[in-house]
């Protein structure tokens, strides 16, 4: 069996008395898109925040490329090659597109910011997504539309040669054309050998790009399916809790 890029075993997380993750096993593979689905509040965002180092897990083992790792802060996550596009995007509105794309990873030359190099790479990353709606890479993010912001956030993750890219509802706020572009991008990322985890509520998006579908139900992983071996209604049954692979767990 192929070694997963990331493998979670027995992950638990609670906020005070509320157990949000109740012992999760999960894996994502290089070159594959793994969709993480589940109802509102199932714990999807919480699960990925642990991988991002934003909100460490209480218990459980994280293996990255087969080796056990501790991800205590975002810098460690990004050091491993994990990039995250958050549901709320996490962009600084007062900075421009280039500055946001390189935030925390600024290019330096003789100790000072190398704006030209950053601008060039940012522009190329955006071009590789065939972005046409952005007028200037030096626009402030405050002047961008929701879809444009999403594009910037995704382009940011492809700038760094990430091994694992996590997208939290990347298409939720997008129109038809931009959704199409983002899904194409997600597929292209995986084809380049990146492991992609995509959270989505939109099952038709999921069936379009995902290789695997993992279903969270109230803090438990109730199913891990191959997209080719399942269908829409079965996934819905898992999401709503009508069905479970764990067998009455």
């Amino acid at each position: 069996m192929e070694v997963p890029v990331v493998e979670l075993t027995g992950i638990k997380k609670s906020f005070g008395p509320v157990d949000v993750l109740k012992g999760i096993d999960f894996a994502a593979y290089a070159g594959k898109v793994t969709a993480l689905v589940g109802d509102n509040g199932a714990g999807k965002s919480t699960l990925i925040k642990g991988l991002a180092g934003v909100q460490p897990y209480d218990e459980g083992v994280v293996r990255f490329g087969g080796a056990e790792v501790q991800i205590r802060d975002p810098r460690e996550a990004s050091g491993l090659g994990i990039e995250v596009v958050y549901q709320d995007l996490a962009l600084c509105e007062n900075l421009d597109i280039v500055q946001n794309m390189f935030l925390g990873h600024e290019e330096l030359r003789t100790g000072t910011l190398h704006e030209a190099a950053m601008e060039l790479q940012a522009t190329k990353a955006l071009q590789s997504l065939s972005v046409r709606t952005v007028k200037s890479v030096r626009q402030k993010v405050s002047s961008l539309s929701g879809g444009q912001r999403q594009t910037v956030a995704i382009a940011r993750s492809i700038l760094r040669e990430a091994k694992l890219v996590i997208l939290d509802e990347p298409t939720a706020a997008l129109g038809v054309a931009q959704t199409e572009q983002v899904l194409n991008l997600v597929r292209r990322l995986a084809d380049h050998g990146v492991a992609v985890i995509m959270i989505s509520h939109n099952l038709s998006d999921v069936f379009r790009v995902a290789d695997h579908i993992a279903v969270l139900y109230l803090g438990r992983m109730t199913a891990h399916l191959k997209t080719t071996e399942t269908d829409h209604s079965e996934v819905v049954a898992y999401i709503t809790g009508a069905k479970s692979q764990e067998g009455g767990n």
């Binding site: 996490a90 962009l91 007062n94 900075l95 935030l103 910011l113």
Partner: peptide
């Protein structure tokens, strides 16, 4: 305007959570 420290100051002022997630101390 030209150092990483300065850039991070503006980033934190704009969105501290985004700055933190970007790995800024």
């Amino acid at each position: 305007e030209r150092t990483r420290f300065g850039r991070h100051l503006y980033a934190i002022g704009g969105n501290p959570e985004a700055a933190r997630r970007a790995g800024i101390k």
